[in-house]
Each structure stands twice: as structure tokens, then as C-alpha cells.
């Protein structure tokens, strides 16, 4: 086996501060807004039904409940607007990184040679706009692996293909 002892040294350190991050596609912002709105519409409906059908007897004016919900809606939407600009990803020769978060910022990097499998999935709203999310899984606690939402389908397929060849190779 001649290539068994191949010395694939990385000559320079991968530098996280110098990664060229790509932003999520601008149109994906609509998906986020619609998703958040739908969630709060559902919450408002629940509040309305509770009040109307008197499921739970409220000992305060229902007006406050609506105000609270509206405030929550505005805050969440605001955070999502700022947060959208912070969502960034980068695929390098040997790893994939994703950045996100406003109040809690995080940057995750998964080296390709630790990836177990790659998944592409799509919610109903994202499908309408032609977006998918790409998830990679490692052997670690799977809840904390990397997921990049809001990729265009072709792009995600390309990345998946790229990672797959890297894993096999």
C-alpha cells in the first residue's frame, strides 16, 4: 500500500479568525419571519381559546396576556432580525464551520474526518422558497452537532457531495 504512509500534513494552522465566512441567502430571512409569525399566531389562538372557552379561569384581564404576547413577538422578531446577519458558514478543505447567535454567540467547527453522516432536510415553508438545511453528525452528543439552515438546494447538495468524497477519501 504505497499511499498508506502518505503524510498529509497541513503546513499552516487552520486559523479560525481568518476564515472567509459566507452569509445565509438573503431571501431566507422571509422564511424566518413567516415561521416566527406562525408560531405567535398559534400562541395568540391558544390565548384566545383559553379566554373564550374559559378553560382556565384567569384572575387578571386577558388584555395583559395579549400585551405580553405582543411584546414577546416583537422582541423575538427583533432578535431574529439582528441574528440573521450573524448566521454565517464556511466550508474549508478539511472542516465546516457555522456561526450564529446574538445574546449567546457560538462558533462550531466540525472536522470532516470526524463526520459520521450528512443530512439534508426541508421544512414546508423553506421548501416553498427552495431552501434546505444541512446537518452533519459526529459521534459526539448529536444535539450539539452542526446544522446550517437556509442553504439553497444545489449549494447544499454540492457541500454534501464534497464532504462525502472527503470522508471516503
Amino acid at each position: 500500500m504505497p499511499d498508506f504512509f502518505q503524510n498529509n500534513t497541513v503546513t499552516t494552522f487552520p486559523e479560525v479568525a481568518k476564515i472567509d465566512f459566507k452569509s445565509i441567502h438573503n431571501k431566507y430571512f422571509k422564511v424566518i419571519v413567516i415561521q416566527t409569525t406562525l408560531l405567535f399566531v398559534a400562541l395568540f389562538l391558544v390565548a384566545f381559546i383559553i379566554n373564550y372557552k374559559a378553560v382556565v379561569i384567569l384572575n387578571f384581564d386577558v388584555f395583559w396576556l395579549y400585551t405580553l404576547l405582543s411584546l414577546a413577538f416583537i422582541t423575538v422578531l427583533f432578535l431574529k432580525v439582528i441574528g440573521f446577519k450573524k448566521r454565517k458558514y464556511a466550508v474549508r478543505e478539511k472542516d465546516i464551520s457555522y456561526k450564529k447567535g446574538v445574546l449567546l454567540q457560538s462558533l462550531t467547527t466540525v472536522p470532516f474526518n470526524r463526520i459520521q453522516h450528512v443530512e439534508i432536510d426541508q421544512g414546508p415553508i423553506a421548501r416553498y422558497f427552495g431552501f434546505v438545511s444541512l446537518s452533519v453528525f459526529t459521534a459526539g452528543d448529536s444535539s450539539d452537532d452542526l446544522k446550517v439552515p437556509g442553504l439553497l438546494k444545489e449549494e447544499a447538495e454540492q457541500i454534501k457531495e464534497f464532504i462525502s468524497t472527503k470522508i471516503d477519501g
Partner: peptide
């Protein structure tokens, strides 16, 4: 042995 690595920072930490 590391599977993936993460940097986390709250606003206060920032």
C-alpha cells in the same frame, strides 16, 4: 479524540 469544537460567548462575555 475531539469530535467537534465550539466557541460560545454571551453578550456579557463579549
Amino acid at each position: 479524540k475531539v469530535q467537534n469544537i465550539q466557541l460560545k460567548q454571551t453578550i456579557l462575555q463579549a
